[in-house]
Simulated scan of single mutants.
Amino acid sequence: MWTRRAVTRLVWPLGAWLACGGGERARPLRLATTTSVHDSGLMGVLGPAFTAASGRPVEVVAVGSKRAIELLATGQVDGAVTHSPVEEAQALASGRIGGRIPFMRNAYVLVGPAAAAGVVAGATDIRGALRAVAGSGRRFVARGDESGTHQRELQLWAAAGVPSESAFILRIHGSMAEALALAAREHAFTLSDRATFLARRGDLGLAVLFQGGSELDNVYSVLEPAPQAGGDLDGARAFVEFLRSPAGRSLIGSFGVDTVGEPLFTPVE
């Protein structure tokens, strides 16, 4: 039972509730995925494609990366899609998860009101940009939900020498889409994965104000369950194989081209 606030569950039967080789209903593959993969729309493409290819329905819960790892470690899901490398490495080293397979990447970007571009105009790296934001008198919307993006925020504020509990930082305990919407209403800055921002920028009135540099690299991985967790390891590995197949890589690499004019994610080897 899902009890996390702002959880989203999606099921894609696509006529494939029947297993490929027989007449019994296949149990859904349960996946916990970071909200950015959901909010960008990518999981809405990958889930049905995997179901069509495998005959296995998919049930998705969209949560922050830390929560996704917890759900996997306690056997509540069969696999997880996360983008919090430090927490992933810790979970793997401790045996709470059974495997970590990177499969795609994009980047984080600092976004804010287009009229505020001058605030960070002189910054040469993200640390300088965040120090400029801190001194600007404007607000910064923080996820505050222990997601991969939230963890990166904390790392970047620490690197910039700015306390993450500063009064100008507004913590919302919400998704990437919610953070972008609030930043638009408050004429504030926020850190977003590039895919979700481009997919949802619409009439937000926000623009990318700083980008580039290794500190903003954003790698997504599929996590497999540890043996003691009781998750469906075979199902998780089938999902990994699909994502790394030519068909899966093509879907990932082309996602966004038709809607925003550029790929939103890049497959990794």
Rank of each mutant, 00 (worst) to 15 (best):
R139M: 09
A142W: 03
V109G: 04
V268W: 04
R25Q: 10
S221A: 15
L72S: 10
G22N: 15
R9I: 14
P267V: 12
L10W: 01
F242H: 00
A195D: 04
R4P: 00
G112D: 10
V111S: 13
A159Y: 03
A89G: 13
T82W: 05
D232F: 07
Q90M: 15
V240G: 10
C20N: 12
T33A: 15
S192Y: 13
E224N: 02
G55D: 09
G174D: 08
S250W: 10
L264N: 02
L156Y: 07
Q76I: 01
I172W: 08
G205C: 03
A93H: 09
Y108W: 14
R67W: 06
R105P: 04
G137I: 06
L243P: 02
L10F: 02
I97C: 07
R5N: 15
T190K: 11
L198W: 13
G248M: 05
G23H: 13
D145M: 01
L216F: 05
Q211R: 14
C20V: 12
R127Q: 10
V208S: 12
S166W: 10
S54D: 02
L182C: 05
R152G: 06
G235N: 08
R56C: 03
A160N: 11
G137W: 14
R171P: 13
D39K: 07
G231R: 13
Q155P: 08
G23E: 14
S254K: 11
